[in-house]
């Protein structure tokens, strides 16, 4: 475990905590895309099929449980909680997210490292994670005025992806036994690029100390 990987995992964890904090304390999910949250829950469910069959480390298992638990509880809050669900921007969150799932599944069936159920599901989760933020970015673009916690949530998610790329480069040079997962690298790079535009406006808003507002 290197510092970039740990920092990446921690920003990922913080993004989830920021989101849960917003939902749990303010009792609002305004500005949060349910579509993106559904995709993330699917990403974790497909990727962590090995959670009870393969043991890597206590850290690994605990983090997987946290990501699975938090993503499904966010879904529960947004769909079932009687106060939170009323703040959901249903009319704005119209991205057809199901149309992302099928192409990712087909791509995983065609391009994978090994044609087994678990391996295809893992690859599917990598492809789907790369595009899962799209409904959220579209929702931000529509609402334009982004509240602090929502802005921080997306910023932390983007930071997590960026740090993972640095982690792969580090591992490539530092670990002799490390094998390059091209599928992960290319998907991860694409995923990080999706945040570039948002990052530009986010950093500017922090620098100028003004509320984050995306251009029309």
């Amino acid at each position: 475990m290197n510092i970039f990987r740990l920092a990446g995992d921690m920003t990922h964890l913080m993004s989830v905590l920021v989101l849960l904090l917003k939902i749990h304390t303010i009792k609002s999910c305004a500005g949060i895309s349910l579509k993106t949250q559904e995709l993330y829950a699917l990403v974790f469910a497909a990727r962590y099929l090995d959670i009870f069959t393969h043991y890597y480390s206590l850290y690994n298992t605990v983090m997987k449980l946290i990501f699975l638990g938090s993503s499904f509880s966010i879904l529960w809050y947004m769909k079932r909680h009687k106060v939170v669900r009323r703040s959901y921007d249903k009319d704005q969150d119209t991205f057809r997210h199901h149309f992302l799932v099928l192409p990712c599944l087909v791509l995983a069936l065609l391009i994978n490292e090994k044609f087994t159920f678990k391996e295809v599901m893992w690859t599917f989760s990598i492809y789907l994670e790369a595009v899962a933020i799209l409904p959220q970015l579209v929702l931000l673009q529509r609402t334009r005025n982004v509240d602090n916690l929502t802005g921080q949530y997306v910023f932390l998610l983007g930071a997590y992806r960026g740090l993972y790329i640095i982690n792969w480069i580090y591992r490539y040079f530092a670990e002799p036994t490390y094998s390059t997962h091209w599928i992960t690298w290319i998907s991860g790079l694409l995923q990080t690029l999706l945040y570039a535009d948002f990052f530009y406006y986010y950093i500017n808003s922090v620098k100028n100390n003004v509320r984050l507002q995306l251009p029309a």
Partner: peptide, 10 residues
């Protein structure tokens, strides 16, 4: 070694 076995990242 089989690289598909090493899934130590989250």
């Amino acid at each position: 070694h089989d690289k598909t076995k090493i899934k130590d990242e989250l």
